[in-house]
Amino acid sequence: MSKAPETNQTKGSKGKLTAARIGCYIVLAIVCFLCLFFFYMLIINSSRNTFQIQQGFSFLPGLSFGTNLNNTLNDANIPVVSGICNSLIVSALSAVLATYFSAMTAYGIHAYVFKFKRTAFALILLIMTMPTQISAVGFVNEMQAMGLKDSLIPLFLPAIASPVVFFFMKQYMDSNLPMEIVEAARIDGSGEFHTFNTIVLPIMKPAVAVQMIFTFVGAWNNYFIPALLLDSANKKTLPILIAQLRGADFLKFDMGKVYMLINIAIVPVIIVYLFLSKYIVGGVALGGVKG
């Protein structure tokens, strides 16, 4: 469509278009610079020692990456290794629970006819954008009463009820899951759970993958609720350790270590993102509502 008018366009308007294009690229370059600059500085600074860092910016990395990494992982005051493990456990379990049970709920509403179907669907849509922070008071007290306060369980178990993931799954089912397949499975004598696990879930694979990434990242980055629940040092997740670092007397700190810890919190997510960016960006465009 764009080719045809160009052939009979005068040189003047063609030149205008090129100028506009150059303008666009310049603005885009500035925007990209803004997005990348801070992360580049983060990675550079995590490879320099405190003295070099205080000299200001440098575009060349230093030689202290290994030292900084070693110092950070072995710091006596900040349990980084257990922090990474806790964050991984919570995020991975959240991702699995949220996607599996949301797909299950969506299938329940998609495939069956029952009395409260419409009510259930409307209720989930209503609470979809409700922030979890507002019930934090009751949540913390309830976990205290249940003996789960200083535990990782209340950080991943509630992921079973993820309205946003549910909504994505429901939308995906509406356009990708013909009920004829389910009917055929029933005629073949497949039980309802068996049908869901062996026929429906594989069809949902792309949606599950995208939502797993979003839920994982959301749980990995979550700070508010874990900070209210976790007390013991070996239970803490990475965002709490970052906050702890911020609270510590700052000047006494080895700056290389500070940057390295931020690095550990951010870079794994970025690496995964760079590999899967096509699906993630596509997921956002398709209705990937992220909490």
């Binding site: 990995w220 980055n221 956002v284």
Partner: peptide, 13 residues
Amino acid sequence: TVIYMPNLIMASA
């Protein structure tokens, strides 16, 4: 890819 990246960053970090 580049402009969406900051969205996935841990806000606290």
